[in-house]
């Protein structure tokens, strides 16, 4: 029986629902036991575990301590979801003065203690495996858990949402309808969800990092604008769901 710990940082907890879903399968339940998850059990501190699933982005010193402790107690660490892998939609505050941001929401900003910019988990600790997605695909998590129980790991693949569209035999929404779509620059994994509903992908599996650079991204952004998306909206989607990749690409750093 493998022990699993679920660590929650700053997020909407949507990925935790996907974790709950993966643990509705008999074969997962017979191989794994969740020994720590504040959402599920009255256990206040994580003990030693085989697998730590870390969800959410790091927003405070407290979170840094939490993930470091999780790393020390877990044999294998998985960053779960776009927040944990890339920083999440909350990264959109980057570039604005944090006090202005706080004042926009709270009457007493001095009560609020958060980092200027949230960090992905891999900025703090070494992560063994990452599952992007906002939320993650619960079936992909179940697949990971099945493979891990057999002593292996799922094969990592490097493709965009476009590949999934082709495989599903979907008509390209950009070509056939002129709808702006982030599919070409977005990590696959959702099964081309938005195009299958006749709309453009909005990038929630995060900006892929492996074959993009600043020039390509700028060209692509301009294409979205040509198709009718406002620049502010385009940047918000690329940056909001792909913060870590976005900032690396925009700064021109090679990864």
């Amino acid at each position: 029986m493998y022990k699993v710990g679920v660590v929650k940082l700053t997020s909407c907890s949507g990925c935790i629902c996907e974790i709950a879903y993966a643990f509705a399968f008999d074969d997962i339940l017979s191989n794994y036991n969740i020994t720590y998850a504040t959402i599920l059990a009255d256990v206040e501190e994580m003990g030693d575990v085989d697998v730590a699933l870390i969800e959410g982005s790091v927003s405070s010193k407290h979170h840094e301590e939490l993930v470091k402790a999780a790393r020390a107690k877990a044999k294998f660490v998985v960053a779960v979801g776009t927040c944990a892998v890339l920083g999440g939609i909350q990264s959109l505050r980057e570039g604005s003065d944090i006090n202005t941001v706080k004042k926009a929401v709270y009457p007493n900003p001095e009560y609020i203690d958060v980092y200027d910019v949230p960090k992905p988990v891999a900025d703090v600790i070494n992560v063994d495996f990452a599952l992007p997605g906002c939320p993650i695909n619960g079936d992909a998590l179940a697949l990971f858990l099945r493979k891990y129980a057999l002593g292996g790991l799922p094969v990592a693949f490097y493709e965009s949402v476009c590949a999934a569209c082709k495989r599903k035999g979907l008509e390209c929404v950009v070509v056939s309808k002129g709808i702006p779509c982030l599919g070409p620059v977005t990590n696959a994994g959702c099964g081309a969800l938005c195009p299958s509903f006749g709309r453009g992908c909005y990038g929630c599996y995060g900006l892929k990092y492996f074959d993009l650079n600043k020039e390509k991204l700028e060209t692509f952004t301009n294409r979205l604008i040509e198709l009718g998306m406002g620049r502010d909206d385009a940047v918000a989607l690329l940056k909001g769901y792909g913060f870590k990749s976005y900032s690396t690409i925009v700064k021109g750093e090679k990864r």
């Binding site: 700053t10 926009a104 929401v105 958060v114 949230p118 909206d233 918000a236």
Partner: peptide, 15 residues
Amino acid sequence: IEAPRFFEFFVRGKS
């Protein structure tokens, strides 16, 4: 103590 994510801030300027 959940860290806020400031949605009301960043919906501004979006369509």
